[in-house]
Design a protein around this nucleic acid. Structure first.
Lengths: 345, 345
DNA sequence: CTGAAAGCGCTAACAT
DNA sequence: ATGTTAGCGCTTTCAG
């Protein structure tokens, strides 16, 4: 593998001149430039990023940390959306995207301390995650795509605000005639599901409806969780006529379990998802869901991070709440039976 | 940021001793070790990967190149599966995963030449891709998860062999009573869809069925392609009673378009996918599909690559064909009407 | 058991 | 317009 030195020897110029040519510095005489170019060509020289990184102190890479197994991450289309946004921005800036999955022994900041990355984007961090907490005060450039504490904190974050979407969803359901609405919540260790539930309760209240504690079930973001929740619901007496879910996977699982029990969606039970994952519109029935802009979240997070890396930590943290909105499709309808009894069966 | 030098000063030892302690070399006296450890602790020293990489000449990272936009990649669960496999193996070996999406001006080998990665795993490379062709003879460690030329070539590859799965699928369909079977093919610039079509034709022949050229449509791996194919099929006269698809997304799109046209799956038309993506079993109807082991493909590719990086290019290339097999679920059934006419309508 | 010195490939001052 | 010198943070000889 040819180095800059080989080229300089071959072209009979100093190392620095080669460096100048490679980096397109204008202050090089044309004949020299040509000679260097020729040497580069014949030697097949490629500048090593390693050397440059060492001297500039920049890793030219951004660490994307998702403290989940690869299996979990890639099973969930939401991450794909966010990664897509991040990837697009990073590509534009010629930054490598270092995917860091799973949990290690050491905290996430290590990636930057070890100079493997210049900054961090963190997805789906549980509330109070000890591996992430050091980041709150650390000078390490970092942007979260989630909130990591109940109260305010000085981290940079970009996250969806579920309030509006949930309110629209509840309103939609109520307008259709639903009064018995359940909520299939995602992991409680994450902020978003908590905020969703808060928004749900609030929306119910403002519609003058009591929330039924039995109809609020919490679990993983997964098909299986959705299936499990519905099964549990079916074992109980009175059942909701509509289900709001923390994400589309739970919704798909719920629909699957509902169908398996002979309960048609949306005729016998309405289901609303959250995310508006790509496949949602192609399902049968096409899923009514609350759209969050995962792609935009990723983009903004990446752009914010690059700003922090370049210009240093901002005086006041960047904290952006992205709006959510309801997308009405085929999985919601008037309840078959608005009266009391066993409406879902 | 503390460097090794700071530590050596603080502990009053040589740089090398610090290095030894950090790397767990046994030949360090216990009191010295403790002193160094203490210095590391108080200074908050973290070894920089950059320095190490420069001197060892190892980037400690593997480039995963997918010459598609992030949007395409993350829209498709297949990639997720392969990445999952790769990610798991790389994690075990403490290698960074450099995700390189999209197409650049320069060939993929550049990632290694620039020492940003020690080797490459390439997914979904079109046949004869000029950006990848140099890799065939290059000494750059590389493993493909696809075949990149029609004939044999000396690349390392791990790919699925669709033959068995397709044969099983056709047989399944024929046993159900289908004689009119269409094939919705993925991108023809990729080898796998070509191999699938070959296998399809062969399976048909061995079942004594003529393939109808009008029922073989080719396009992207996407919902939209599936929808488009079905629309085109519906515009024509005689239609197949069953559809075999190059992947699950096409199948989902096809089902969606079929339903939209009032054609029930599986009663009026059977549909079989390919991949067995996670969501497939949770769809309504649950998708009958040909399972390929994307996760295993990723794992094996990563393990192979690590071997090549460590031990050099093998005498004869590693070329592994993974078997595929049919998973029967709910989207296939007896044809409503085996006779001539308009069976799908 | 420990240290001194060299150098990995590159850029940045500072000459010339 | 071009060259010289000094490192970036680390590991490796090779000596002590």
């Amino acid at each position: 593998m040819a180095t800059i030195k080989d080229v300089s020897r071959r072209a009979d110029v100093s190392i620095k001149t080669v460096s100048r040519v490679v980096n397109g510095s204008p202050e090089v005489a044309e004949p020299t430039r040509l000679r260097v170019l020729e040497a580069i060509e014949t030697l097949g020289y490629r500048p090593s990023a390693l050397g440059k990184r060492l001297v500039t102190g920049r890793a030219s890479a951004v660490g994307v940390v998702i403290p989940r197994t690869a299996g979990y991450v890639f099973a969930h289309p939401y991450f794909s959306e966010v990664l897509r946004g991040i990837g697009d921005v990073l590509g534009q800036h010629h930054l490598d995207l270092l995917l860091h999955l799973g949990r290690d022994d050491c905290d996430y900041a290590a990636l930057v301390h070890q100079r493997r990355a210049d900054g961090l984007i963190l997805l789906s961090i549980p509330i109070g995650d000890p591996l992430a907490m050091p980041l709150i005060d650390d000078p390490v450039p970092a942007v979260f795509t989630c909130r990591v504490t109940e109260g305010t904190n000085p981290t940079n974050w970009v996250d969806s605000d579920p309030t509006n979407g949930i309110a629209e969803a509840v309103q939609h359901l109520v307008q259709l005639g639903h009064r018995q609405i359940g909520f299939l919540q995602g992991p409680q260790r994450l902020m978003l599901p908590r905020l969703q539930l808060d928004a749900f309760r609030q929306a119910l209240t403002s519609q003058g409806i009591d929330s039924n504690h039995d109809w609020i079930l919490s679990g993983d973001y997964s098909f299986e969780a959705g299936i499990g929740h519905v099964k549990r619901l079916l074992e109980r007496g009175e059942r909701p006529t509509a289900l709001l879910c923390s994400d589309d996977m739970i919704a798909v699982g719920a629909i699957s379990a509902l169908s398996a029990a002979g309960i048609r969606v949306p005729q016998d039970c309405s289901v609303i998802g959250f995310d508006d994952v790509l496949i949602s519109r192609h399902l049968t029935p096409a899923l009514t869901t609350i759209r969050q802009d995962g792609y935009g979240k990723g983009r903004i997070a990446a752009e914010t991070l690059i700003g922090v890396i370049d210009k240093g930590r901002p005086a006041s943290p960047v904290q952006i709440a992205l709006p959510t909105t309801l997308v009405i499709r085929q999985s919601t309808a008037h309840p078959a039976c608005v009266s009391e009894g066993r409406p879902m069966a």
